[in-house]
Design a protein around this nucleic acid. Structure first.
Lengths: 143, 143
DNA sequence: GATATTTTATGATAAAAATCATATTTAAGA
DNA sequence: TCTTAAATATGATTTTTATCATAAAATATC
């Protein structure tokens, strides 16, 4: 459903949401190992997220990655779009240009409402929301 | 959401459902062109579907592809599984093995019910259902 | 300022998915 | 039985995605 890159990005952001702060930066290795993603790969993803200001970083000794308070308000959808580009989730199931609610493709009715609901949630849910969920023990930190 | 291969497979099956029959077989070119898929590619997909008995074929002159009455009862999900392999649609969003309803990953609640609903529909809906929908003008044949 | 530690930029390689090409087999019809 | 029209089998190529590698730039600390 998501690309590996998007999944890894979400995992990394959540890991940062739970474990990092401006005074507790994490170095690539300390992210890659626990979330179980090859470190050279996650490094590249973190760079992209950092460039898009979804996460923060400073280089040099004592440097690393972390999230600011603002960045805890990032929506899950923004993370996905940052790494995968937009509309991966918004197009018709069959990728038909002509398909829309007025002129639905054959599968349209089967998925439309549910797909919308999922998308709405991804657009609304923030890292902070997920972090709190994890803190309360209502879901697990994906590792 | 689906692979190109799965999308093309669904399009081709629907096209056959609407336009073919045991006495009106369609040749690759007559499928590939209208549904707008490269013919060498759709040929390969049709071969796979035929081998799994989701569509029928006969070779030689007057040969071609078609659906039997039974095959009109094929579920959309079966088509997807035939070409993509199973479980592409059944795994956790983040592909976590440990994630399930008892031990949900952070995104689990955001998608679980809707994903299930979609999957249920894909498992229930037959080509014949979709064909009738199209015949009644309630949806378009995806081209 | 020199050094060490970190991210950043860049690009190389590997694997998977999509696409293209073609020789072989089958069956109809002359 | 020969020819022709079709699917089938097989595999090559291209494109995309995933992964790996490394030199350059930045910054803290001595």
């Amino acid at each position: 459903m998501f690309s590996n890159t998007a999944k890894y990005a979400i995992k990394a952001c959540l890991f940062l949401a739970v474990n990092s702060s401006e005074v507790n930066k994490l170095v690539i290795k300390d992210i890659a190992e626990p979330i179980n993603v090859p470190s050279a790969y996650i490094a590249k993803i973190l760079q992209a997220l950092s460039k898009k200001d979804i996460i923060s970083s400073t280089r040099g000794p004592k440097g690393g990655f972390y999230l600011t308070g603002d960045q805890l308000q990032t929506k899950v959808m923004q993370i996905i779009e940052a790494v995968d580009g937009e509309e991966r989730l918004n197009s018709c199931l069959l990728s038909l240009e002509k398909c829309n609610s007025d002129n639905p493709c054959s599968l349209h009715h089967l998925v439309f409402d549910e797909k919308n609901k999922i998308n709405e949630r991804l657009k609304k849910t923030t890292l902070e929301d997920l972090r709190q969920h994890i803190m309360r023990g209502e879901s697990i930190l994906p590792l």
